[in-house]
Design a protein around this nucleic acid. Structure first.
Lengths: 336, 336
DNA sequence: CTGGTGGATTTGAACGTTAAAACGGGTGGC
DNA sequence: GCCACCCGTTTTAACGTTCAAATCCACCAG
């Protein structure tokens, strides 16, 4: 492993000059720069990140707590998210450090410790919950962070965030279903305690209202869990109460899969008799038949904004960014 | 941020003594130790990891390349794996650093660079492919690594690995189906180019043979892709060719889901008329109905062995560990 | 009383890098 | 001809830790 000193000796310059060649090339005379660059390549020199971090007190690592799902709940797009996050981090010369921590405020000492021991510069939070205590805690400790997802039920956001417009996404789904001739659109939701669910539901309610479609509460069923079974059960409930329903907007792909199953059971053809849309555009969406129309969160863009906010020292622009999801139309909502 | 020097001043000892209090407490007299410990707590001191790593040239970070799935392929248990890996790493004082790299040998410069710049001590490889070139490359460069998954089609393994006995798992599934009265068991596989698939298939073939059950090639269908559609199509093929089939062992949960769908389409009851088993015990297995019997890879154990091998300097024990998966029985293979 | 022994603690140096200040040699103004 | 200035480069010092060697001190044998 070559060091700066060895490169310096080889190029017959001082150590600092080699350092400058890497960090501030404009300070060198062109011929010196070239000579140093040649030595660097010849010796296959790579800067030691630890030494650099010690000196500059910046580790260029971003912490991300890998969520632990208690009762076998699914996070079907986590690998997409992680991949996007890594890519964005790398394009700014940083990397992602994974760790585990207890949920809620109990986990905060772990965050604090990682930061205090200089393993990370800051954190990306996800799986934001209603009244999530982590944000305020980190802000209090002056530990840099950015959140994927707003903290619901708070009057002021306790820090920078990036989120996807769930209401807008659902409204787009409703519009698409309307445009393809559907006129009675049900909604599969989660329990009322979820700010995320309420947000998405509001998009369905609003757009249905604007289009003159029915949007009363009986058309929105709250599933007790995010499972295929619950999706199927709720779909049955919906269809039993109102057989004229010709489309269902589900708040997750899993629930949508349940809807597909229930339709099949009743001899109804998904996409023809009843259209179905999901949320997240998880890998499952394209793997079932008919393939599932779904609302895709723009992972690359999300990750880009997260890293951008986290790595911009004094944020001039807004540090709250709401991104628009994209409706991916597939067979389950085929026209007509 | 308190430093060793400040703690030393506070406790009225030398810097080195504080260092020893943390790294070799037995060297201190009990009363000194207590005094130093008190100062450490009082000042809320945390060792600076960068300084430590610079001195010891060990960063306590393990690199893991987050797989990028080209054509929407699914890795349903990646979050389980990552969580287990993190937990294991943390229990040895280490952490996981994520990065992206091109697949195959093109990605190796990225590995080499991370190691040369001292961002990681070594790597955990997964998604091992037949003739995977990474292992030999890393070995050549003397970069520490351990592989989750054997390199198939190689006479000698180019490094330490941990793997799950896929053949054994499938044999167990066959045995379970036999024990619950099934006598004609089909197999849903992947293309022949996959060593992983051949291994699992061999378990089915062997155990069927031992039990006197048919195991000719017509009973093993090769799916072209790991999708629900392919699983359904292959199941149809299987049932059309041999209507007496009363059980299907699928090489993945996704294919098993396809089997479930095809059975439903034919008016057959999964678990009653035809039993189905999957592989991986992904979150989907417990979320469908009937819930899917599946072969669970012991993620915690896998992660533990991986970290153990990677962090043991001179391996006395074997560095090739084959773990037994566990059959999780659910409704899709209900007795009778 | 001397010299040796061994455990506890301190000293000095080093890990590889960068920030800041110092240096040296031209250039140009007056 | 002197000074001020700028540019490219070197020197010095520090970041916070640990290793290796040195020192100190109490104790004990001879």
């Amino acid at each position: 492993m070559a060091t700066l000193k060895q490169v310096a000796a080889h190029a017959e310059v001082s150590v600092q000059t080699v350092s400058n060649a890497l960090n501030a090339p404009h300070r060198l005379r062109p011929d010196t720069l070239q000579r140093v660059t040649r030595s660097i390549e010849l010796l296959n020199y790579r800067p030691n990140r630890n030494a650099r971090s010690l000196r500059t007190s910046a580790v260029e690592l971003i912490g991300y707590c890998v969520p632990s799902w208690p009762h076998g709940q699914v996070h079907l797009v986590m690998d997409q998210f992680l991949h996007a996050l890594c890519t964005s981090a790398e394009s700014s010369g940083r990397h992602i450090l994974l760790f585990t921590a207890p949920v809620g405020v109990e986990g905060m000492p772990v965050y604090e410790d990682l930061h205090a021991r200089r393993l990370v510069d800051g954190f990306v939070l996800s799986q934001t919950e209603t009244h999530d205590p982590r944000h305020a805690w980190l802000k209090e400790q002056q530990i840099p962070f950015v959140s994927f997802g707003r903290v619901w039920e708070e009057s002021t956001q306790p820090g920078p965030w990036v989120d996807v417009d769930g209401a807008g996404g659902c409204a787009t789904a409703v519009q698409h279903l309307y445009d393809t001739g559907r006129r009675r659109i049900g909604f599969l939701s989660w329990p009322q305690t979820s700010g995320l669910a309420e947000n998405r539901l509001s998009g369905w309610r609003a757009r249905c209202g604007e289009l003159g479609l029915p949007n009363h509460d009986e058309l929105a069923v709250r599933c007790r869990a995010d499972t295929i079974d619950e999706g199927a059960r709720s779909t049955a409930e919906l269809l039993d109460a109102d057989p004229a329903i010709d489309a269902i907007v589900a708040i997750s792909d899993i629930l949508a899969l349940g809807a597909l199953r229930e339709l099949g059971r009743r001899g109804l053809v998904a996409g023809v008799d009843v259209a179905v849309t999901g949320f997240d555009d998880s890998p499952l969406a394209s793997v079932v038949s008919p393939a599932l129309t779904s609302i895709r969160q723009p992972m690359d863009e999300i990750a880009g904004e997260l890293i951008d906010i986290l790595t911009t020292p004094d944020p001039k622009g807004p540090t709250e960014r709401l991104l628009q999801p994209e409706l991916v139309v597939r067979g389950s909502s085929a026209p007509g």
